[in-house]
Design a protein around this nucleic acid. Structure first.
Length: 472
DNA sequence: ATGTGC
């Protein structure tokens, strides 16, 4: 199915109803690992959607998802093209925030680390179905959060102004309209400041390896220091927006003479009333997710200052990026809607959409690895234009959750975690997140770096991780 | 990913 196109690069040729070809970035090893995964079919199907522009992209962590594969990018013509809820994904603005500290990680005792975890667990509920620990965010009257994102909660005292300038879109995607939210979604916006389950986590880590000294310095990441990574999204709200609009798009597509390649890729014209409403509802969920991570970052500051005495102002936000989002951008001289699903934007040095602090360097792109293994901070280069300035969002699964539960034993998982502290007393409840269920983060991250599309900046090593538990 | 499935 894939035709080699140079080192770590493959073409998915145009066949059948595909309007554009696919470009897929995999090492030989990853291509073998992917095999004939349905992800390649899903990528080919996405290329059939009206207005598909340039090429569809499969990133090194790609694996099958609902509609578009996770680790997939689809750009559609902003005027003539469609928008697909499934091409953004269930967890709208699932994303990652990285905070740096000046604190030397080797000065942190195991007792202090345990205390940090305990204190954070008290403040941040995790797992499925949990409600906000903060009364004012359980009222359902959250129009300001939907419309202003991070800014709304920083204004209420949860954060520092620098957090906003160090967040993608400054923590607020334009075009949000709470009136576009489905009734069922409105019922589910009581979860601000909660972590969630699955691959979401809150991690204390160490800036372990500095690969690019100049960029690491510019990003404020000093070797040996303690850092914190928050991986979470829009919780039940985003899930409901995707579910309801995907169903609506499926019903509406025939009215616009749109032939759908699959249910998961249900789509309507961007210009249609349904398309506009989806984008307005999606922006609400995007902003809710930015605010969610903002609130958790506030708790991280409080706990770090209380337990180990780091001044809150010294805990800086490196950046916050979205992994599941659709945004209007300009590429190859054309206005397009870029759907990124399990993909992170990574703008190159000098790009005007960079935040001012990172205009010259390109903003940091955050790639969380698997629990217990490691994560990367990378930066995009000008050559990354061929992926619409997108990089992989993680390591990518090699097994489904159910497969992982069958094949991985608790003892094997415990061994693979090594010294990493885990909050969960029952590894069985998070076994679908075992490192063995994922690809190798080093291998995956180096695919784009080795062909000059990204510059790896630092590798982070986990010290302790908080995960939401599922069922046994 | 998810008050976890048409």
């Amino acid at each position: 199915m894939l035709v080699p196109a140079g080192r770590n690069k493959w073409i998915l040729p145009r066949t059948g109803k595909m309007l554009v070809e696919g470009r897929v970035y995999l090492s030989e090893k990853l291509r073998k690992q992917l095999g004939n995964d349905t992800a390649l079919n899903q990528l080919a199907q996405a290329a059939e959607l009206r207005g598909a522009f340039g090429h569809v992209v499969g990133l090194p962590d790609m694996h099958s998802g609902f509609g578009l594969p996770i680790g997939g990018v689809l750009a559609t013509d902003a005027r003539e093209g469609v928008v697909s809820a499934g091409a953004v994904g269930m967890d709208i603005n699932c994303g990652v925030r990285l905070m740096s500290t000046p604190f030397p990680a080797d000065k942190l005792s195991q007792v202090e680390l345990a205390r940090l975890m305990e204190a954070l667990e008290q403040r941040i509920p995790s797992g499925i179905g949990r409600s906000s620990p903060l009364a004012q965010y359980r009222t359902g009257n959250l129009e300001h959060v939907m419309c202003q994102g991070s800014r709304a909660v920083v204004a209420e005292g949860y954060g520092l102004p620098g957090d906003i300038s160090h967040t993608e879109e400054e923590g607020c995607l334009t075009g949000a309209d709470p009136a576009a939210l489905p009734a069922e979604a409105v019922k589910r916006m009581h979860q601000l400041s909660t972590l969630g389950g699955g691959n979401h986590f809150l991690e204390f880590c160490l800036v372990d390896r500095v690969i690019d000294e100049e960029l690491a310095t510019r990003f404020g990441l000093a070797p040996g220091t303690l850092a914190v990574m928050i991986h979470s999204g829009s919780r039940g709200l985003g899930h409901q927006v995707c579910t309801d609009y995907s169903r609506l798009m499926l019903a509406a597509a025939p009215r616009y003479n749109i032939q759908l390649p699959s249910k998961g890729l249900a789509a309507v014209p961007i210009a249609s009333a349904e398309g506009q409403r989806y984008l307005a509802a999606m922006a609400c969920a995007v902003n809710y997710a930015f605010a969610n991570r903002q609130l958790m970052a506030h708790h991280v500051r409080e706990v770090l200052s209380r337990v180990v005495g780091i001044a809150p102002g010294d805990i800086r936000q490196v950046y916050d990026v979205a992994h599941n989002i659709a945004k209007f951008e300009r590429h190859f001289g054309k206005d397009v809607l870029v759907h990124r699903k399990g993909a992170t934007r990574a703008l190159p040095p000098g790009h005007r959409d960079n935040p001012p602090a990172y205009r010259e360097t390109g903003h940091p792109a955050l790639i969380p690895g698997t629990m217990g293994t490691g994560s990367y901070v990378v930066s995009g280069t000008a050559e990354l234009s061929e992926t619409f300035f997108s990089v992989n969002h993680g390591a990518g699964r090699v097994m489904s959750r159910s497969e992982a539960r069958k094949k991985i034993s608790v003892s094997a998982m415990r061994e693979s975690l090594g010294e990493v502290k885990v909050n969960s007393s029952s590894l069985k409840r998070i076994i679908d997140e075992a490192p063995a269920a994922y690809k190798d983060i080093d291998e995956v991250t180096l695919v784009l770096a080795s062909i000059g599309l990204t510059r790896p900046v630092v590798r982070l090593k986990p010290l302790a991780v908080i995960k939401g538990e599922g069922d046994e």
